[in-house]
Simulated scan of single mutants.
Amino acid sequence: MKFKKPKLVPDAKKGWTWRSVQAASLNTAILSTWVAMPDDMKVAIPEKWVLVTAIVVGFSGIIGRFIDQGAGDA
């Protein structure tokens, strides 16, 4: 199986306006903050909430990928 060389979509500069990219960025921020947070602060937030939030945001990114977001949505 031969793979094509990856290339950017024509309007990659507008990528930050796409819902799927915004959701992935938010998910990264949530999980990175959780990992960096000291253990004594983590006690105040149930771990299950963090995981459920990450899953919901992740799925919203997938859904956002399939929704027409106007002209230029790659």
Rank of each mutant, 00 (worst) to 15 (best):
P46Q: 09
G72V: 08
V50T: 05
P38T: 08
G72Y: 00
P46A: 03
V52P: 06
A54N: 03
V43D: 14
L51M: 14
M41G: 11
K48S: 11
A44H: 10
W49I: 15
M41Q: 15
D68L: 08
P46E: 04
V52G: 01
I55M: 14
P46C: 04
T53K: 00
V57S: 07
I62E: 03
V52K: 10
I45P: 02
P38D: 04
P38K: 01
Q69P: 00
P46H: 09
A71W: 00
F59M: 14
I63F: 15
G64V: 01
P46Y: 01
I67E: 10
I67L: 10
V56Y: 03
I67H: 05
M37K: 07
K48G: 03
P46V: 05
S60R: 01
A71P: 11
V56F: 06
V43H: 10
D40T: 02
V43A: 06
Q69T: 03
F66C: 12
K48Q: 09
A44C: 09
F66E: 06
W49N: 04
E47L: 01
M37H: 04
P46L: 07
I62F: 15
I67R: 11
A54C: 13
V52W: 13
I67D: 07
G72H: 04
R65S: 12
G58M: 09
D68A: 05
A44L: 15
V52N: 09
A54Q: 02
V57W: 10
Q69N: 12
W49M: 14
